[in-house]
Amino acid sequence: MKGDHHVILRVVAKALIPIIALYGFYVHFHGEYSPGGGFQAGVILAVCVILYSLIFGIAPTMRAITPGFARFIAGLGFIIYVGVGFWALAMGGNFLDYDALFREEPGGHLGQHTGIIVIEIGVLFAVAGSMVTIFYAFAGRVSEIRDEDW
């Protein structure tokens, strides 16, 4: 932490972190056409936050993305997922039956596509929020170990 001991690390990370975040969103929104999806993208976005906190310290990270916000995102993702299920119920289908979302004729795929995109957003939020919450819980704990133990 003293001086510019980690100057190269900081400069590289500053350039790299936005690219990692962009890649996370690419993985998410391209998940139907290539490997990827909500789980992977959520983890990559959480890794962005973790990388930032490893290099710039945990306190500035917690100011940028507060622990409460991370927990809110995690809960919101789960609610979005369940919400799609209830949307399908309200439209007269079964729970999470995407074909019922817009009451389409058989052969229409709008409901399936919409359902998959929305629940993937729910997965993204829930996974990213939970992973950041878990990391904050570990990183925010005060260490009781002295340096000689290393």
Binding site: T66, R71, T133, I134, Y136, A137, R141, V142
Partner: peptide, 17 residues
Amino acid sequence: AGLAVSLLLGFGERSLG
């Protein structure tokens, strides 16, 4: 799991938050 970890380790007085 996220909830359980934050209940176990907490955002209370001992945490940096």
